[in-house]
């Protein structure tokens, strides 16, 4: 094949087949590989050796920034920039500033969570070798794929193909980059 290859793709028909195959690929020491599933398969992260997602840290940072934004905005606008006396009360108190800061905490957490998730996943990415696979539609529907990339140091066309075959993969073919 003249065109550079992205990797090998193998098809699995059931969730347990995929699960056991993923564990075999993990044990073979591959790093640049992935499972394509139509829904989040419970327990597959462990079978693949995917570490726990770090999205929560980004969310926490977003939440802290949101809360501080709320408090400092209310303090600066009402007590510094234009001192507004309402009912003879102090210019600032964290009590009355709380509801707005609370809502901004949630708002910024939501932005950070979704932004973080997309950033970590490298999305949006409308062009991808996997999306060019002719049967990708089934991967969004009812089949499961394992993709092992050529850039993986352990990748070797014959050996990797043998591993996928041994793991029960069907329809093993090369993906164009």
């Amino acid at each position: 094949m003249a065109a550079p290859s992205y990797g090998l793709i193998a098809t699995f028909d059931t969730t347990p087949d995929l699960y056991h195959a993923a564990a075999k690929v993990r044990d073979a020491g591959y790093r640049n590989w992935d499972c394509i599933t139509p829904f989040p398969v419970h327990g597959l992260d462990k079978a693949m050796g995917v570490p726990r997602s770090i999205v929560p840290r980004i969310s926490l940072a977003g939440g802290i920034i949101g809360f501080c934004t709320g408090m400092s905005m209310i303090w600066w606008t009402g007590a510094v920039d234009y001192q507004l006396i309402v009912g003879g009360k102090p210019l600032f108190s964290p009590m009355f500033a709380f509801p707005v800061s609370y809502e901004l905490t949630i708002l910024f957490t939501a932005f950070a969570t979704i932004g973080g998730m997309l950033f970590l996943n490298g999305l949006p990415m409308h062009y991808h070798a996997v999306l060019k696979y002719e049967h990708i539609r089934r991967g969004m529907d009812d089949q499961f794929f394992i993709v092992i990339e050529t850039r993986d140091p352990r990748f070797n066309l014959a050996n990797t193909k043998a591993l996928l075959e041994k793991a029960g993969g069907k329809n093993i073919s090369e993906l164009e980059a």
Binding site: A22, D34, C35, I36, T37, P38, P40, V41, L44, D45, M48, V50, R52, S53, V55, P56, S59, T113, I114, G116, M117, L120, N121, L123, P124, M125, H126, Y127, H128, V130, L131, I136, G139, M140
Partner: peptide, 15 residues
């Protein structure tokens, strides 16, 4: 460009 990657699902489910 969602492609059902399980590495994506992992972050997605957490989010």
């Amino acid at each position: 460009g969602w492609r059902g990657s399980n590495r994506h699902w992992s972050n997605y489910e957490m989010a």
